[in-house]
Design a binder for these strands. Sequence first.
DNA 1: CCTACCGATCGGTAGG
DNA 2: CCTACCGATCGGTAGG
Lengths: 197, 197
Amino acid sequence: MSRSPEIQAAAVRLFYEHGYNACSMKDIARVVGMTPPSLYNYIDSKQKLLRDIMFEGIGLLTADFDSAVAKSDDVIEQLRLAAEALTWHNIHRQTQAYVNTVEIPSLEEPARSQLIQRRRAYVRRWASLIERGVAEGVVTAPEPMLIAFNIVDLIAGLARWYQPTGRWSEDALIEHYGQLALHMLQCRQLVRQHGNI
Amino acid sequence: MSRSPEIQAAAVRLFYEHGYNACSMKDIARVVGMTPPSLYNYIDSKQKLLRDIMFEGIGLLTADFDSAVAKSDDVIEQLRLAAEALTWHNIHRQTQAYVNTVEIPSLEEPARSQLIQRRRAYVRRWASLIERGVAEGVVTAPEPMLIAFNIVDLIAGLARWYQPTGRWSEDALIEHYGQLALHMLQCRQLVRQHGNI
DNA sequence: CCTACCGATCGGTAGG
DNA sequence: CCTACCGATCGGTAGG
C-alpha cells in the first residue's frame, strides 16, 4: 500500500497555496505526517512531483475535451460542452489546474518544453473545433487560434479566484461559461435545447 | 542619481522570467552589475521590491481605466476603450502585469490583503461601467461582477503568452480584445465610429 | 520510516 | 559600493 498518492495530493495543495518554490519538502512531510527524508521512499524528487502533477493535469484536460466533443454531433453544442468541461475541470481540480497554469517556469527542461507543447496541442483542439464551426457558417471567428487562447485563458482564470462558498454556484458558473464561449464566437443559435442530446 | 529604478526594472524582468522565489538577490545584482550587499544601499528588501512593483502596477492599471473612460460619453465606447487600455497595459507593461497576477501568494501580509483589495476595486470599476450599460439597455449582463472578472482574466492571459514577434500584431490584438469585450456583453451597437470621439 | 548529516544557497548585516 | 560573514533553510543522502 503506497502512500505516494497521498504525498502528491499534499504537494498539489501546498504548491497551490504557496507556490512550488515557496514550499519545502519539510512542509509536505508535515502534512502527511512524516519526516522529510521518509518522503524519498515514495517519490523521486520535488521536481518529479511537480512534473507528475502537471502532466496528469493536461492529460485529464485533453481527455475531458475529447469526451465532451464526443457527446454531440452539433458543433455549437460541442463547443458549449467543451467549455463546460473546462469549467468543471477548473472547479473540481482547482489546485491542479491552477498549478498547471502558474508553475510552468518552475518546471525544468526538457519537461517544460514538453508541457508547453501539450498545452498548445490542447488549444489547437479548440481551434480545430472552432474552425469547423466557421466552415459550417454557424460561428464567426476571424482568428480561430487566438479566440481559442482567449476561451482557455478566460476559464483558467476561474481556478485563481473560485471559492465553493462564493456568490456563484458551480452549476451557475458552468452554465455561464458555456454560454459565454458561444457569445465570444458570435454563434447563431444560442438557446440550449434541453433533453435533446 | 539613484539606481533604484534600474534595480526595480531588473527585478521585474527576473520575477517575470523565473518567479519571485526562484530568483535571488545575487541574480538581480548580476544584472545591474553590483554585488548583492550593494543593492541594499538602494532598496530595503526583496519583499519591498515586489511590493513596489505590484502596487505600482495596479495603480497604473486603475489610472489607465479612468482616463480611458474619460475619453467618451458613450457607454459602449467606454467599454471598448477600457478593454483596449487593459490590452495595451498587458502588452507594454507585460512583465509587470504578469508578476501582478501571478505573485500575489509571494506577497507578505498585510500587503497581500491590501493588493487583493485594490485589484477587486479595479474589477468593481468594470462592473459599475457594465451596470450602466445594462441600465441604458445597450448591454446584456445578468451578472456584471462576474463578467467583469471574465474580461479581466481574459485579457490578463495575454501577458502570459504575448510575444512581440508573434503572429498577431499589437494593433490587431488591441482591436481584437476591444471587440471581444463587446461581444461578451452582447452589445447592440458593435461597429466602431471612426474619427468620431 | 527515522536520526544524523551533507554541501549549497538564501536574504541580509557589519564595517569600512 | 565592496569584502567578509551571519544564521537559517534548502533538497537530498547515508545508513540503518
